[in-house]
Design a protein around this nucleic acid. Structure first.
Lengths: 248, 248
DNA sequence: AGTTATCCTTGATACAGATCAAACCGCTAC
DNA sequence: GTAGCGGTTTGATCTGTATCAAGGATAACT
């Protein structure tokens, strides 16, 4: 089935689902053509680790479809997720030889890869790519810093609410609402992955999800399907500024 | 005395102490000349907050001398430091109108500023600047992710040891060793600032510093002057991989 | 239908770090 | 001198989350 995915992906950049958000977003038609010559697709199954920290990296890539995680592991096994990779996100660092983190597919995944050397050469010749990559990296840095506030200062309940709000907000962009404004989505992560994201144990995650359900902040069917009847209520639980940084 | 600092700073980029590390590191002589025409210096006293989150930002800047912090504050006053700015570090984001974090001088500080508009124009015309900024941003992202592991998974003792190791390593680059290999430095941060950095309370910071002293991992004279007799011993206490990611 | 495996929930208990409180140290100012 | 003050230490107690342990739900396999 990975085989099937591989071939159902558009090989024409013009029709690519991440065309307007990925590193190539700013590229002109002629630049795109050149990129198209050095790109290739790879797909992975859910659960597979595509890259191990310390591995030699001979390519960089964009996530086309699916979700992956970036995690760091300590010698004794403590794990912390340090990045959540969604479609259009970029993996790898131009100018670095080895991977700094483990990259794991949490769903089936398709990546658009570029061998590193040609990509670096193109980047030097094509300011549009470097510009876009800078913009994306700055966004990631902001996200990492918001996450630092979460890890350092939020309570377990606030952490869970924040994670649900992040996922809900992203999915809300994709029209997933019921008749009367409530948001519905599927969690792409297991409780353990949520724990690794939030700096908690899986038991605490489970308890806090149950608590939010008990208090009517969320509803759930099964373990993964979440319903948010009132997004503002959920936001209150995150501990964030009510205007969510949307000032000006 | 801020006045004094201001005038003791080299206005000639060629002699600038951060010439080879800041955003301008890659610039050629002619590019440097152009930058020199739009730059100006500002100095601040220790303790001063230069920028408040949400402020309109009409400039970007490099730290020339001194140390500043980036912090985020929640409505109820919980604070988390999300960046530590050392000489050559860059402040501000091209293409964004308002500041996302508070920026505070922890020591007297001199910044090399550029009005945002001209800087953005120069960046578009000068790939060397954008390249260097990308590189610096990627480094900051790596630092933020290491910090996430610290915040999410390390114990209080490991957090303190990690912070001391970071500062010691940085200062070790600047020849501050005694005869027999021990490292000596002054903490640039108060206990409260350390706590904001590490996601702890200041009492816990104080206790863990005392504990590390009691166990002979560090020595201290007064409250700020630290002695590290055996850096490897300190590293063991950080919980990090012994080879510190220095592989390959 | 039963077996196994994976993921999740819930309970009992332990403990690291927070919180509350008091006192201390090294200053500078009068 | 001593009063005041910011930064720091130390003690007593509380509490949120981890840890240890057991059991439930769901799906896939035989």
């Amino acid at each position: 089935m990975a085989h099937h995915d591989l071939h159902s992906v558009v090989h024409d950049c013009g029709n690519c689902p991440i065309r307007h958000r990925a590193v190539c977003a700013r590229c002109e038609a002629d630049e795109l053509l050149k990129l198209e010559q050095i790109k290739y697709y790879r797909s992975y199954q859910a659960g597979q680790t595509l890259i191990w920290s310390g591995d030699r990296m001979d390519f960089v890539a964009s996530v086309v479809t699916g979700i992956a995680t970036l995690t760091q592991t300590m010698e004794d096994g403590r794990r912390q997720m340090v990045g959540l990779l969604l479609p259009s996100d970029f993996v790898g660092r131009p100018g670095r030889a080895t991977a700094a983190y483990d990259v794991t597919a949490t769903t089936d995944l398709v990546m658009c890869c570029f061998r590193k050397k040609p990509f670096e050469e193109m980047m030097a010749a094509t300011p549009h790519i470097a510009q876009r990559l800078l913009e994306m990296t700055l966004d990631e840095l902001d996200a990492a810093r918001e996450w630092m506030l979460l890890l350092g200062r939020k309570t377990a309940r606030e952490k869970i609410a924040s994670l649900l709000a992040i996922i809900a907000r992203r999915d809300a962009g994709l029209k997933l609402r019921t008749a009367k404004g409530s948001i519905v989505f599927d969690l792409p992560l297991t409780r353990e992955e949520m724990a690794d994201y939030l700096g908690l144990t899986l038991e605490t995650v489970s308890r806090q999800v149950s608590a939010l359900k008990r208090d009517g902040v969320i509803g759930l069917e099964g373990k993964r399907h979440i319903l948010v009847p009132d997004f503002d209520r959920l936001m209150e639980e995150t501990g964030d500024d009510s205007d969510g940084g949307m000032l000006v």
